[in-house]
Design a protein around this nucleic acid. Sequence first.
DNA 1: AGGATCGTTCAATCAAAAATGAACAATCGC
DNA 2: GCGATTGTTCATTTTTGATTGAACGATCCT
Lengths: 170, 170
Amino acid sequence: MPELEESGSVPVAGLSDLERQIVDFFVDGVRVLGMPGSVGEIYGLLFISRDPLSLDDLVQRLGISKGSASQGLRTLRGLGAVKEAEVPGMRRAHFEAAVDLKRLAGGFIREQVRPHLESGQLKVGRLFEAVAAEEDRESREFYDERVAKLEGWMKRARMMLPLMQKVLGQ
Amino acid sequence: MPELEESGSVPVAGLSDLERQIVDFFVDGVRVLGMPGSVGEIYGLLFISRDPLSLDDLVQRLGISKGSASQGLRTLRGLGAVKEAEVPGMRRAHFEAAVDLKRLAGGFIREQVRPHLESGQLKVGRLFEAVAAEEDRESREFYDERVAKLEGWMKRARMMLPLMQKVLGQ
DNA sequence: AGGATCGTTCAATCAAAAATGAACAATCGC
DNA sequence: GCGATTGTTCATTTTTGATTGAACGATCCT
């Protein structure tokens, strides 16, 4: 007597070929962006799902722990990459992927890029102070030039952001 | 009787306050870009050094292994982020930081970004094939729409590259 | 050629990050 | 209120990736 059976044409666990490929695609993608693979798995599966999925669906289909699923969903909600969907008659929360690139890029910039740029700016300020403490004039001038260059780089990096938003947004 | 002494006003090992801050700055920077911290240490120290440094200088000053220094320098040379400098009368190779942002960004794009975009494009091709294998018409249409969206995202990502080069270059 | 110097490679080690899962907290339905 | 269901947290385990350092090969110098 079998302990469990597949319950229908929709796989309860395990992924179809297409789903597997999509999930892997996003795992690579989020890894490039410096995020854990499970976040990519979750977003990938939601992206290719016609219907919203619950946390438990994700756990079952992807074979990940509840902890990872919960934490991954939190990250994705922070980025604005998943939305909670109302599924009538269902108690559990269900989620679907946000697929508006402008919104996705905006969330990523806000959560992951801006904080780094801002802390970088602070550090450059402190660097100028450290340079001012240098005794030797020639050294100080060299250091000052380098830190100024760094400041310029940071400025250009900040210029990139609105430009990215523009290209990606619509 | 002391075993060793500092040999002058230039620290043989250990970093000045400014050097430490610069090195940390670049460690964070390269980590954001998904590279090992030692690469940032090396680039940082070269960036703030008036004179070119040898591999052994980097090992001594940063307190890292020869292996890390060698591998880090290889990475940085691959990016075009360090140049070999001719130091007359010195047998060892000496290196200095390349500080042209356009060149740096170009190297990063060539080495780290393009490969991902290209493999992504291949994968999207395979995704369209997987979609075509879907039996159910409604599902297939949904999948097709999603993969087409992905293709669009990849296209926009590729559009970003020359734009980045333009903003960063000069 | 032969000893010395220098840089690279790679198997082993170590550290950082991610994933797990059990305990807990919150919410629901009755 | 009470039991059942659902989601979160966090200490532990596991995995991944970086770092080390000894061995090796290449190059230089006389």
